[in-house]
Nucleic acid binder design. Structure first.
Ligand SMILES: [Mn+2]
Ligand SMILES: [Mn+2]
Ligand SMILES: [Zn+2]
Ligand SMILES: [Zn+2]
Lengths: 142, 142
DNA sequence: CAATAGTTTAGAATTATTATAATGTAGTTT
DNA sequence: AAACTACATTATAATAATTCTAAACTATTG
């Protein structure tokens, strides 16, 4: 979803009714220069701040999952206990900064493609994701 | 933790009191040929079946996290919503079978080492984990 | 064997997520 | 444009996973 586009049309194209809530969520999520990572709680805050309008938590969950199913969002799993979503839906890998709990995209130059030599028999590979956990270089052993 | 070893000593070595519950959990987790993956619920069932003895859920959580901190267990994160633990604490990667929800270790021969060319400045890499999601090869698109 | 610090426990609390069912709205039909 | 219908939103309740609490218990130390 590029910027400045008509979200109403985009929603209709994939069979989602362009409701006020969904269009607002599109604005918050996709009307920006760069992709980003967020939790559901982040998003609820962003919506109520940017749109200055209340939205039901259930709607945020429903809509995020609808967008995920349509390929507009990807879910990223870190440490269990917390679900991150990503507006960058291309296949890519992540650094996770354990100091700040921040999820950071790997650039193509940061990591060589993963070479899988042998797959499970009779199965198809749906995704390959690398998660690199990093933390402060200091004496903080743990 | 190799098989047939004295779990009481092992526990003491790392400063954990060898209580009945902890020794029982060691038996269930480590007194076997192969490493394996489990959820907390799996483990509670395994303990009450194998040991024929009740154990508090809180104790299972406490003990699993104590073992994790001591490096006897690793936590593996799949899809959020579910935490798996691994008695194989060496650095290794996983297949996740989305049909059966089964976590499977990658063999060394299954995948080439991940080559990270550029890390985040000022950070140390704590872990690199690859998760390969697979599913039935049939027409089941999704 | 008494003292102490650490452990276990049942149950309550918390958190994230999903379900429910009443109300509202977009798209379509008259 | 009123009516109709299917889908969406909402507040709230329900569920599930995990953690907290505080009392009872136990391994270790002196
Ligand atoms: Mn955990
Ligand atoms: Mn999810
Ligand atoms: Zn990303
Ligand atoms: Zn494993």
């Amino acid at each position: 979803m590029p910027k400045n586009c008509n979200f109403i049309e985009k929603l209709r194209e994939v069979g989602l009714r362009p409701t006020k809530q969904r269009v607002n969520m599109c604005e918050v999520l996709f009307n920006r220069e760069k992709t980003f990572h967020f939790t559901i709680n982040d998003l609820v805050k962003m919506i109520s701040e940017k749109m200055n309008q209340k939205i039901s938590l259930a709607t945020v969950y429903n809509t995020v999952h609808a967008f995920e199913k349509k390929g507009y969002l990807k879910e990223i799993s870190i440490d269990s206990h917390k679900s991150y979503f990503d507006t960058n839906t291309s296949a890519h890998h992540h650094f996770f900064d354990e100091d700040t709990n921040e999820l950071i995209d790997c650039d193509e130059n940061d990591i060589d493609p993963v070479n899988i030599k042998k797959n499970i028999t009779g199965k198809k590979i749906n995704s390959v994701e690398v998660l690199i956990k990093v933390a402060s270089d200091n004496q903080n052993q743990k």
